[in-house]
Amino acid sequence: NKEKKVFISLVGSRGLGCSISSGPIQKPGIFISHVKPGSLSAEVGLEIGDQIVEVNGVDFSNLDHKEAVNVLKSSRSLTISIVAAAGRE
C-alpha cells in the first residue's frame, strides 16, 4: 500500500475534524475512524480506514490511542503520513 503525506495547518478554532481509534490486536496501529464532512481532514483527503503511520516525525506504529491524540494536539501544523485504506482490508 502506498504511503502518502498530507499537511494540515490548524487555523483559528478549526480542529482537525477527524477521530482516531486503535486497530485490533492482529492489526495494531492508529486508524481514522471518523471524518467530519467539510473539515480540514476531509479537505486534505483523509478517509475512514486510513492508517496514520507518522505525525511530525513521530512513529505511530507503537503508540496507544492516548499518546496518538496527544501528538495530534501538540502542534498547530501537522505533517501526517498515512497508508490509505489500510484499515479496510
Rank of each mutant, 00 (worst) to 15 (best):
V55C: 13
G38A: 07
L10V: 03
G38D: 11
S13K: 15
T79H: 14
K27D: 11
G45D: 03
A42H: 13
N62M: 13
L40A: 15
S33I: 04
S33E: 08
N56I: 10
K66I: 10
H65N: 06
S61F: 08
G17H: 02
I80F: 07
D59K: 12
E47D: 07
P24G: 13
S81P: 03
S77D: 14
D59C: 09
G15Y: 07
S77R: 12
L16T: 03
L72W: 03
V44M: 09
A85Q: 13
S21H: 11
G15H: 10
S33Q: 09
I25D: 12
S9Y: 07
V35F: 00
L40K: 15
L40Y: 11
Q51N: 04
E89P: 14
G45K: 02
E54T: 10
I30Q: 04
G17F: 04
T79S: 14
N62T: 11
L40G: 05
S19Q: 13
C18V: 11
S74Y: 11
Q51T: 01
S9N: 10
L46A: 02
R76W: 04
L40F: 06
E3T: 09
I20M: 04
S19R: 12
I25G: 13
I52R: 00
I25K: 14
G15K: 14
C18M: 15
F31M: 05
G87I: 08
V6R: 05
S22V: 11
D50F: 00
S41V: 06
S77N: 15
C18K: 01
G87W: 07
H34C: 09
S77K: 14
L63F: 10
I20H: 00
I32T: 01
S9F: 09
I52P: 01
S81G: 09
K36M: 12
S77P: 05
S41N: 00
I20D: 04
S21I: 15
L16F: 05
V44K: 11
K4F: 10
V44Y: 15
I48Q: 12
N62H: 12
F31I: 03
G45W: 00
I82H: 05
A85K: 12
G38R: 09
E54D: 13
L16R: 00
I82T: 12
S77F: 09
S41F: 05
Q51M: 06
G38F: 07
T79N: 14
V44I: 10
V55R: 02
N56Y: 12
L78Q: 03
I48Y: 06
D50A: 02
A86M: 10
V83L: 14
F60R: 02
V83E: 08
G45I: 01
A85R: 12
G87A: 13
S21Y: 11
S13I: 05
D59L: 06
S81V: 11
I80V: 09
V35C: 02
R14Q: 14
V11F: 15
S39K: 01
T79D: 14
K5E: 06
C18I: 15
V55E: 00
I30H: 14
E54G: 10
N62E: 12
I52G: 01
K2Q: 07
S19M: 09
L78D: 04
L16P: 03
